[in-house]
């Protein structure tokens, strides 16, 4: 029997034409069958720590990193001594906590390292030790670097 797969041909075509710019396909978790937009996103992914902060973290933690409070609280990252050890914020970004999801489906180890480095050196936090991809990938649940 001759093998013939339209799927494989289409996949090969797609690979050949992948644009060089960094793209992030919007991820829909497989279990999330709730109401959804129903299309595809082709989004330019944030790269620097500041870009990741502005385009992801700020949604909940606010532009000034002071968080917010209603029926419950989104913690402030500004002036937060818990950021002194990088492993703490890295673990939260990788694994999530409570309402906050883990972000490994959206962010690479490099993006996570960049944004953790950014919040540790901004918003009144002064923890200048650089955060590396390796710091992220050693956390259980993180994607391998690269």
């Amino acid at each position: 029997m001759r093998s013939f797969s339209i799927g494989a041909q289409l996949a090969a075509l797609a690979l050949a034409a992948t644009p060089a710019v960094a793209l992030a396909q919007a991820q829909t978790p497989p279990q999330s069958r709730g109401d959804s937009p129903g299309g595809s996103n082709i989004l330019r992914a944030p790269v620097t720590g500041e870009q990741v902060y502005r385009q992801v973290c700020q949604a909940c933690h606010m532009a000034d990193a002071k968080g917010g409070s209603g029926a419950a609280t989104i913690p402030a990252l500004a002036n937060n001594p818990r950021l002194s050890a990088a492993a703490y914020p890295i673990t939260l970004v990788v694994k999530g906590r409570g309402a906050m999801p883990g972000f490994t489906d959206l962010l690479s180890p490099a993006q996570i390292a960049n944004v953790v480095g950014y919040i540790r050196t901004h918003f009144g936090n002064t923890y200048p030790k650089p955060v590396t991809d390796g710091d992220v990938t050693q956390i259980e649940g993180a994607k391998p670097a690269g």
Binding site: A26, P37, N41, L43, V56, A59, L106
Partner: peptide, 13 residues
């Protein structure tokens, strides 16, 4: 807009 994923984070911020 009915945004989800990264697009929604960006708009929410």
């Amino acid at each position: 807009a009915f945004a989800s994923g990264l697009g929604a984070y960006r708009l929410a911020g």
